[in-house]
Design a protein around this nucleic acid. Structure first.
Lengths: 172, 172
DNA sequence: GTGAAGTCTGCGGATTCCGCAGATCTCACA
DNA sequence: TGTGAGATCTGCGGAATCCGCAGACTTCAC
């Protein structure tokens, strides 16, 4: 048998069964390790990943495809829209009366909204928006977002400068 | 000459010169189009991208490499840490007295901090943090972040559920 | 004990990646 | 106006990678 940098394979399988999260199931240590590799470089070859996690090239490929199909992970190019230019960006904190999730869904449906998260604290929902310019920003916040049923109030934080943006939660 | 889906090449060059953003220079329409392609699929082959934007495979490869080297773009796997499991995540709004940028830099240096942005509004800085558990979260916020010189106050928004996460600003 | 489902491995063949040399264009400067 | 440096694009092979598939193995339910 080849060396196994992560752990015993069969043990992983048993672990993955006892996922108490009903929605998105089963992420064993090997898949975690694969995701970590792709967090460092989304274009890393499958063979190199396989060597790092102790799997064949084909097995890595099948796992990655499955993770993508399930929506657990996506491999994409990320930028700073402000650096790329000509756009206004903001985080909007929202207070909701009634069903929070339906408001979050309505916000998620808007193309200018890149990021929506339900939170505990003095806001019920946080939404990040990317706009063409100030007029567009004003339109999205004051017309469209405030018009969503259940939105009680909003507070905006216009982005001045992005200082850090990483995806390295795995590698610590 | 082949068809040119984006625009005239030489015209692009002229456009790219007049970038009034001193920090990160020059992003012409072709590079924008390449980024859009990679926002849809970070592993899309260079040849396919070249066909879409009207460039040869080698030219796309050189441009992508340059964008990566310059830090304009990164190609990575992104997930929802909450879905992946066993972690607490929060957005922290911060008020600063004195130099905001130095505070932002200090926060950026912390490994648990994934995202830092300077803002206009009732917070000076927003920081997103990913922690192992509640104890870790408490430690990072109350011990480490509040200890940064210049931090006047913080307010936390613990993540309950991520509803949307895209990187499609280009394709609208 | 047996069959279905899931996963891993190994293996070609097609595709892609990669470095390099030459051509083209722009721009600065004499 | 001419010239040379710098940047970018194209085309081309050779190496590496991607991709589908068939077989083997394990687990699980019945």
């Amino acid at each position: 048998m080849h060396s196994d940098p992560v752990a015993s394979r069969s043990a992983e399988h048993r672990d993955s069964r006892e996922s108490r999260n009903g929605s998105t199931p089963h992420l064993d240590a090997v898949s975690l390790a694969i995701i970590e590799q792709l967090q460092e470089d989304g274009r890393r070859p499958y063979a190199a990943i396989g060597k790092a996690v102790g799997l064949s090239e084909a097995a890595v490929r099948q796992r990655v495809q499955k993770l993508l199909d399930q929506g657990v992970m996506q491999i994409v190019a990320v930028t700073d829209p402000l650096t790329v230019g000509f756009r206004r960006q903001a985080m909007v904190g929202i207070n909701v009366e009634g069903d929070v999730e339906s408001v979050a869904d309505a916000l998620s449906a808007m193309p200018e909204v890149e990021y929506v998260v339900m939170t505990a604290g003095s806001f019920d929902v946080l939404a990040e928006i990317v706009c063409e310019d100030d007029d567009h920003l004003l339109d999205v916040i004051n017309k469209r977002m405030r018009a969503v049923p259940g939105v009680r109030s909003t507070e905006s934080f216009v982005y001045l400068k992005l200082k850090k943006q990483t995806y390295m939660w795995g590698t610590r």
